[in-house]
Write a protein that binds this DNA or RNA. Structure first.
Lengths: 210, 210, 210, 210
DNA sequence: CATGAATGAGATTTCATTCAT
DNA sequence: CATGAATGAAATCTCATTCAT
């Protein structure tokens, strides 16, 4: 399944390369020329088909968030056991970010901008994902009895996965600078396992003292 | 202590507003006009004092990373006990991000861009912080005996703190969209406590089964 | 025939006024604004059609040198007698400079700059003209038996014609300063006749003594 | 003797490097920064000592033309025989251009610009040189009986020497493009000899027929 | 006497957008 | 339905010049 499944092929052929470039350079750093070149269409065609730089960006974001929401909702549908649901949540997010490496940087750019370009549609998509995540996490023992805020847990999960996904490119640049050979195989897979261990598989935490 | 302590007052008066704007809009989204206006100087003065846009950006990044590295190193200096050191690490990072709210978005923009604009000086600053963090985390029981990768722990800590710091602005935009009243007081303070609980205060994790 | 015959009308409408201004003010002294104004198009249109200032300049130079080369080659084609060929060479150059008064100053600016801006295409054009001139002059009796270097002859012919063409504007400024009434009708026509007399019509020179 | 002998050492230390740069890049292509750097003084010092970009340029031109005029007048002083005088004229000009390679390009830039920047002082210098040259050439047999215009002869001499002096830099760029090995040792020396032969040593020309 | 600092004006170039076809 | 052509606005950067010290 792809993020832009709901759009016409005409739009998809523009939105997919656009997403790649927006992810790499952010909204301001992306030019319509570059999108047109990557999409293999005339620049005016983008205006004809979609309308606007802001609209292209919005469609990409909406597509991404709706995709995440849909996949999450589909996989969580009819799964009753809290720990199973949480496991699916984390695994699904990790899998989506692994498959669509553009999502983390794109969303991070937006987040870092304070959500300047977020249209109501995009906010709705974000809310949908957030809602699913929060309700799923709220049912966890760790939250129910452990006193962990579900929003904090959500932020940790998303933040950890995003950073892991992004660490690759910068890590390589750092490689020459870091003396000792730290592990290079930092991957979403490993982070996913750590998150599962910390939030899902583990029993309600027992503090060091007490 | 301030991030641009090592620079001349002349440079500081430019770098500080520049950092604010870069954080908000990213490198590409920031114009020299805006920086000049915010700094209260003529645009050409920026070129005279610093050189060009890329150099302004670089100085800001170097200033930020060196500040983090210095504060960390100073506070960790002569603290021998691993758990104390880790606690200081997390608390210091949380405090710095709380005081300098511009850092997380600025660094996130850069990270999301794949570190395209990272000069050797900036990379050196990053490496310095990373090194401190990794060696500190490596001494934790959870890492030593719990099998948790220090790099994963580092990414979780940074990622969680960054996301928490950023969540404020977007959360407000979401407020209207999210029906139920989720906690609004998500703060670095709370996230810091959760991180301490998960990584520092807790004993070596005991899996659910076995 | 015109220098920019090979270009599209769109390009010609830019290159022709550009040539005029480059000739008057040189490369550095010419602004894109001025070219745009003279061409009656928006400044961005020049970038759309041609690319950048250096390319505009290059096209002008290439157009000029190719024009000279083509006219020379066409008029010399199938003329076997050396003296006839040389006469045609001088007359053609004089005629071209007379018709296109912009050429000498433009080329002089470039020459004075040491050919800094000369692209391979322009150099090829220059070489083509030079080749034609040198082979033509080499066949002259004065060169064959008189021991005059064909390159020196070429330089004298070009230099004399260029200076004559340029003398007009400065001469007028000098007019007030020069007391006696020197001839005002210094023209390419007269210089051409003198060159023909010195290099073409005359027999192999007999030195004063011997 | 040097072109800027009449100026104070303070001015000379600026005018000499300025002349070099003006010669290379022309008036518009030369920046005050570059002059200051080459002169090893602060940019404001140029304004303090001389006053103005236009004034710097003017002083350089005046210096050059006065130098030529002075040397010519000094060497021609009390030389009565026309042929001797003409020989001295040509030899002196060739020697000056050979010694001060910057003169031809600088004067050519100015000439190509139509004398836009020529102040009255500079025009007076030019007139002085021109006067000397014309009166000297007017006495030649070739002019007196040969019907050659002294102004044409002047233009040929100056034009030929200038072009010869400039040909070096462009010739090297052409070297790769010109197939056959044309002589490389085109020098002012050779051109001077040719000019002497054509205008001075030779008897009044006898046309080919008649 | 000299200069570091500053700047208004203007240079080249890019870019989102429009429009006639 | 699509696009080549065009452009106003704004971006980065340069430069001749001034001025306080």
């Amino acid at each position: 399944m792809h993020p832009f499944t709901h759009h016409s092929p005409n739009e998809r052929s523009i939105l997919e390369p656009a997403a790649r470039i927006f992810a790499l350079r952010g909204y301001a750093g992306t030019s319509m020329d570059e999108i047109a070149r990557a999409a293999g269409v005339n620049k005016a065609t983008i205006y004809y088909r979609i309308g606007n730089k802001a609209r292209v960006y919005e469609r990409v974001l909406v597509g991404y968030f709706c995709h995440i929401a849909e996949v999450l909702e589909q996989r969580l549908h009819a799964v009753p056991i809290p720990r199973d649901r949480a496991r699916i949540l984390v695994e699904t997010l990790a899998a989506i970010f692994a498959e669509h490496g553009d999502m983390p940087p794109l969303l991070l750019h937006e987040l870092a901008s304070g959500g300047e370009h977020l249209s109501p549609d995009v906010l709705a998509g974000i809310a949908r994902v957030l809602q699913t995540s929060l309700t799923t996490l709220s049912a966890l023992p760790m939250v129910q009895q452990g006193g962990v805020s579900p929003l904090l847990a959500h932020l940790m999960i998303i933040g950890s996965l995003f950073f892991t996904s992004l660490s690759g490119s910068v890590a390589m640049r750092l490689a020459a600078n870091i003396p000792q050979g730290t592990e290079k195989d930092v991957s979403l897979e490993l982070m996913k396992d750590l998150l599962l261990e910390l939030f899902v598989d583990r029993d309600v935490p027992s503090r060091k003292e007490d």
